[in-house]
Design a protein around this nucleic acid. Sequence first.
RNA 1: GCCCCCAUCGUCUAGUGGCCUAGGACAUAGCCCUCUCACGGCUAAGACAGGGGUUCGAGUCCCCUUGGGGGUACCA
Length: 523
Amino acid sequence: MTVRTRFAPSPTGYLHIGGVRTALFNWLFARRHGGQFILRIDDTDQGRNQPEALQPILDGFRWLGIDWDEGAEVGGPCGPYYQSERLDRYQAAVKTLLDKGLAYHDYATAEELKAEREAAEKEKRPFLYSRRWRAETPADRARFESEGRKSVVRLAMPREGACRFHDHIRSAMTVEWTNEADHVIQRADGSCLYNLANVVDDHDMRITHVIRAEEHLSNTPRQIFIAQGLGYELPEYAHLPFVAEPGSKNKLSKRKLAQYLKNPDFRAACEHGQAIAAAIGLTMTAETFNPVIVDFYREVGYLPDAIVNYLLLLGWSLDDKTEIFSRQEMIAQFSLERVNKAAASFDVKKLRAFQERYMIALPVEPKTEMVLPFLQKAGLIPAPTPADMVTRVTDIVRAAGERIKVAGDILDYAAFFVADEQLVYDQKAFNQHVRKPEANALLRKARERLAAVTFEAKALETLVQEFAQSEGVKLNDINQPLRVAVTGKSIGFSTYETLALLGRERCLTRIDRALEQGGVIGK
RNA sequence: GCCCCCAUCGUCUAGUGGCCUAGGACAUAGCCCUCUCACGGCUAAGACAGGGGUUCGAGUCCCCUUGGGGGUACCA
C-alpha cells in the first residue's frame, strides 16, 4: 500500500512556523516511504477565509521546497481538494450516519445546552448531553419544528465502552477514551463541521497516515466513530507535540505576538528583520512580519534549507550528534518513532545558528545572487544589474565572507554603493576615530601616504604596517580612523580590502571629507 | 469542573536497567587568535521535578504527588 499523507492549511494569509513543521513531517514521511503528500485546503469556515489569502501559503511551501503531489493548484485524482467544494460529499456522509442511527437530529437551544453543561460542572461530573431534544421519529421532528426550533445533527456517541487506538508517537501505549460527548457534525444551515469533513476527506483522498498536531488527539475517538460508521478503513495516527512559544511550553500562536516580543532574543530577531525590511521599502507591521511567520525569513534573506533543517530537529533527532541534514539525508532517516513526545519551544537563536552554518557553506556566486535583490530594492544598484556591477558585488560579498548571515545583511555594506557625499557617519565612531586630535593627526598623515600607493589589499597592508611602525602606534590606531573615514562605521571587514574595493579616488575624497568634518553625521 | 497528553542543563536533545562521576548542539562566561567586527580554537558553568515502590542495580519499569500543556465550540 502506498503511503499517503496530507497537510490541510486554512487560507489565513500567512504560513505559521508550527504549521510548517507539521507539514514537513508529513512530507518527510511520504517521501521516506515513496508515497504521496497531499495539500488540501481547509476553507470550510467561509466567513473567515479569503481566496487571495491562499497564495502566500502556497508560495511559502514552494520556497521551502516542500512540494505536493496532489492538491491545491496541481489537482489530482481524488479531488476536489478544497473543502468548500466538497459539501455534497459531507452531506451524503451525514445522511448515511443518520440512516444507520449513528447520528441524530437535535433540537436543543444553545441556552438549554449551556444549562446542562453548567449543572454537570457544578456536580463535578463529566458533561454528557441528556438527549432530551433528540428527534427519534419524523413526528418528533415535526413537533420540535412547530415550536420554532432548529435542528443540528449530532453524533450518537456510545455511552458505554471505550475507544482505543494506537498512536505512532506514543508507541508504547494505546490511547483510550470513554464517555465522548455528542458532537455536532452538521449545522442547521446544512454546512458541516471539521470532524466530519476531515474524516470524509481523508478517506476520499486515501490518506494512510494522519500526522497532525497533538491538539487533535482528543478529536480522534469521534473521528474513529465516524469513520467506522461510514465503513471506512482507519488510517494510522501520529499526533505531533506542539511547537511551543519562545521560552515557554504554550502552543505557539500568531495571535500572541506582543507577548513574544518581551522575549529579548525574539525581539532582537524581529528588529533585525524589521530594519532590513525598512531598508528595502517593505512596509510591514510586527503583526504580519515577525519570526513566527515563514515570509519573514524569505524577505530577510534566510536559506530555506536552514529553516527546514532547524524545524526537522524541533521534536525529532537521529542520534546524539548529527545535526546537519541534506534533504536526501533527512528523507532517508526520518521516522515517526524518533519524534519526541514533549512539546519543543521555538528558539529563534538556534534557527539563526543553522542559518549561519548554511550561509558559511554557501559559495560566493549563489550568495551574490541572493544578495542582489536586496541592493536593488534598497535603490543602491540598478535592476537589472549590469555585469560589471555584479562583479563588484561579488567582490564585496567575498570580502565580507562570514559576516553576511542573512542575505539582507549586505545592506551593512551600503557604504560601498552610495555616492561619497552621501556617506553617513556613525556619530560615536566618528567622534572617537576621526575627531579625536591624535586620531585626526594620524589620519592626516596616512592620507599623504595613501596618495602614492597602489590600491591593492596586499600593498595597502604593507603600507599601513610600515606606517604604524614608523609612527610608533598600534595597527588599530590607524586602521579604525581609515575605516570610519571611508565607510562611516567602526565595524566591517579588513581595512585593506575595504580601501582596495573602494579605490584610491573615492578613498581620498572620503578621507578629505571626513577630515573637513563635512560628512553627514548620523546618530 | 471533567477528559486526555507530557516531564533530562536557560533552549533543542542523546539516553530503551549496569557502557552515565548523564553525552552533544544553541545560548552564556572566560581565555586564545586578531586592525574593528565576524569566523575559528580552548575552557568553564549548567539538568534526570518530588516521593514511594520493583530490582543486586533505575534518568531508564510501576504508582502517587507536583508542575506544564491540550481538549471540553453550531473553530480548525
